[in-house]
Nucleic acid binder design. Structure first.
Length: 251
DNA sequence: CTCACGATCAGCT
DNA sequence: GCTGATCGTGAGG
């Protein structure tokens, strides 16, 4: 936001990412994702993440069946960006974990915008078709909705496949993750665990509560299609026996 | 080459 | 709360 605050946004070191992936998903809550675009900094506080396990361990992970051209970055060192495209030209951002080259990563699902809000709004709008609803969207898009969702935050922060593989710890990186700085207030966020979004409810991995979210944030992404603006926290998708992580759960 | 499948989103009921 | 759009990716023939 302010130059003084942006000066506090230094990249977290490699060792921050070198830990079990579920632990990293929790540790990322409250940190600040920063995107440098020319002289402009776009940034938001991370409020929602999901852990994805490794090859042969987590059927929901792209790395489950081993390295492919798309997910090769997951098999690289920790602290790099894995950006993949989903349909409708949208992207999702993951950060690699552990560095054991077994394909573990954390999906960043939602941010609370901190810096560059007008640019985020413009980038989001540019991705929509021109039409009669455009003005209404412009007026109605609340700040906390700008990056509430994995595809939305990539649009708003101009994150696309060109950033796939970038080192998040690099001093000159166009993308990095920083500590909360003074604005963090010193108190650790309160984390709630739920099953991950979009899984087949019948799948065994649906029982693993590997989605971490900041209970205090209004910017967490709804599981699917729910109207924004409501104050209710998202309800986890119906899954058999949701449970918190256990030693057995952690790949 | 062809086919099936989503780690989604916006709009409407 | 539900539906349709729409296309990159990877597996298989």
């Amino acid at each position: 936001m302010t130059p003084a605050r942006s000066g506090e946004w230094r990249p977290l070191p490699r060792r921050f990412y070198q830990r079990p992936v579920v632990e990293l998903a929790a540790a990322l809550i409250g940190q600040v994702l920063v995107r440098r675009r020319g002289r402009l900094l776009l940034a938001g506080r991370i409020v929602e993440t999901e852990a994805y396990g490794g090859e042969g361990l987590d059927p929901s992970a792209h790395s489950f069946r081993g390295s492919t051209p798309r997910c090769a970055v997951m098999f690289g060192p920790a602290g790099h960006a894995y950006v993949y495209t989903t349909h409708q030209g949208r992207c999702c951002l993951n950060v690699t974990a552990e560095g054991d080259r077994r394909g573990k990563a954390v999906l960043i699902r939602a941010l609370e915008p901190l810096s560059g809000l007008e640019t985020m709004r413009a980038l989001r709008l540019a991705a929509l078709d021109e039409g009669p609803t455009r003005a209404r969207l412009l007026a109605g898009r609340a700040d906390h909705e700008l990056a509430a969702g994995p595809g939305r935050l990539c649009l708003g922060l101009a994150i696309d496949r060109e950033l796939n593989g970038v080192d998040l710890t690099g001093a000159r990186s166009p993308l990095w993750i920083a500590g909360p700085g003074r604005s963090g207030g010193g108190s650790r966020p309160s984390i709630r665990w739920t099953p991950r979004v979009g899984l087949n409810p019948a799948s065994a991995s649906c029982a693993w509560s590997w989605r971490a979210l900041d209970v205090a944030s209004a910017a967490v992404s709804p599981p699917r299609g729910a109207r924004a603006g409501g104050s209710k926290l998202p309800r986890p998708r119906a899954c058999p026996r949701p449970q918190h992580r256990t030693a057995k759960n952690i790949p």
